[in-house]
Computed example of a mutant assay.
Amino acid sequence: MIPTRTASTFAPPVMEARRWLEGVSFPADRPLINVSQAAPVDPPVEGMKQAMADAALSRDDAHLYGPVLGMPALRYGLAERTERIYGGRVEAENVAITSGCNQAFAAAISTLCAEGDEVIVPTPWYFNHKMWLDMAGVRSVPLATGADLLPDVDAAAALITGRTRAIALVSPNNPAGAEYSAALLRAFFDLARARGIALILDETYRDFHSRDGAPHDLFRDPDWHDTLIHLYSFSKAYRLTGHRVGALVTSPERLGQAEKFLDTVAICPGQIGQYAALWGMQHLDDWLAGERDEILRRRAAIEAGFGPLAEKGWVLMGVGAYFAYVAHPFAESSATLAQRLVREQGILCLPGTMFCPEDDPAGARQLRIAFANLDVPGIASFYERLASVTG
């Protein structure tokens, strides 16, 4: 087989982890605890499902090709919401609706990079970003983070070369859970602008941020779109993961280039999912605030219950949005520990080796926990099982 760029990257981590379940049984009194994937496990609320059904039954356009850059009403609605959250000026012409946030990232890269270009990515990284950069022929330049899992601006500056086209950040972070402060994001924005590159900011988990108010002030810069490329996901906010509704917010000129990519890959985002996202923005603000409160309760339970694990040498490195990122105390690599947890404890989680370069030893000590899939009692049960693990 002729080597291809697609062959150069790794298998999808979540799918690989699911294969570890083959041949393993989980008794009724000890069911599988699946903290491998950051996705809502419940369907949309009844009102949203009804709105989707109504669109399917009464709107012919719900079954036809729509605009490549998305439904005008949804583009306008997200622009208005973005202004309301962050301040500044955002127009509908700055917004494209995409088939999920991963597609928004891919579309952004298509407008930025040629073969052999570089994008700086903090580690631990979001594996789908790394996979797409591999498949696009773009070099991922790892930016190691410290014990607090926050990237350092000066360290990033030292990595910029003549082939660097962007710095890609995720906040709240996947996989680390770390929330980047407004000051840190501003510093990265200023660095990117000064060096003539883009700042890609993926805020898929924005709606579950622990701080009140705007996460940053970047949209208040009147020329934000010369540097900032913003990504968002309706899927996490409204439990629309199966409908793939994301967004790319940038300059109209860049969207003109992204339209070529989007038209070729999907022609248009799914219409019914777009109707659902629009209905959600119009009707579910109070519900979404309640969802955030529940995620924050689960985050508090992660932090409050960690003491017994800390006594056994575990370290809670990061926590936020859907994720906790932990270091384990064993000599064993997380790559084999994660598989052993399935067999011995009925826990499915992802090893840190899936979020780091192969030559980075940090990943062997780390695990990602998608705790948003557990309620507070479930977190307690999860901790009980982890505490019984031996090296």
Rank of each mutant, 00 (worst) to 15 (best):
G213W: 00
F127E: 06
R385H: 07
I197C: 04
P124R: 04
C101K: 11
I369L: 14
I229A: 04
G273S: 07
T164V: 02
L240A: 08
E93G: 05
P44L: 05
E22T: 07
L248Q: 05
S8A: 15
I33Q: 12
P122C: 02
L341S: 02
H283M: 11
A53S: 10
N373S: 12
P151W: 03
G270A: 13
G196D: 01
Y65P: 14
P357G: 05
A7I: 05
T4V: 01
T390Q: 14
S388L: 13
W125Y: 15
I167E: 09
M131W: 11
V319I: 05
L149C: 13
T227A: 02
P142F: 00
P252N: 12
V319Y: 00
I109L: 14
I167H: 03
C349P: 02
A214L: 00
D154N: 12
S233D: 05
S140Q: 04
E91H: 04
Y238E: 03
E303P: 00
D42A: 13
S388D: 13
F355N: 08
G352N: 10
R385Q: 06
A380R: 14
F188I: 00
L112R: 11
M15E: 12
G273I: 03
V389N: 02
P43L: 07
L64M: 13
D29S: 13
N94I: 10
Q103D: 14
A104M: 10
I2W: 05
L316K: 00
L284E: 15
E291Q: 15
D293H: 08
A108G: 10
G318W: 05
R84A: 15
S171M: 05
A364T: 12
I97L: 15
R163D: 13
G273T: 01
F10A: 13
L231F: 09
N102M: 14
A380L: 11
A372F: 01
Y232G: 05
K236Y: 13
E384G: 15
P27S: 04
D293Y: 01
L143N: 09
W287Q: 10
A380K: 15
D154H: 10
L185P: 01
F323K: 08
C101L: 08
G290L: 03
F219T: 01
I97M: 11
D293W: 00
P357N: 05
F127S: 11
C113L: 04
E332A: 12
Y325I: 08
E311W: 00
D207T: 13
R254V: 06
P43M: 02
D148A: 14
E384M: 09
G280I: 04
G313Q: 11
F323P: 02
D152M: 10
E303Y: 03
E91L: 14
F10K: 12
Y383W: 12
L74R: 07
D221W: 11
E46H: 10
R75G: 02
P43S: 08
D221A: 11
G242Y: 07
A136P: 00
S210D: 07
A183P: 03
L149T: 06
A321D: 06
F10N: 03
A277K: 11
I160M: 09
I369P: 07
A331Q: 11
P40I: 13
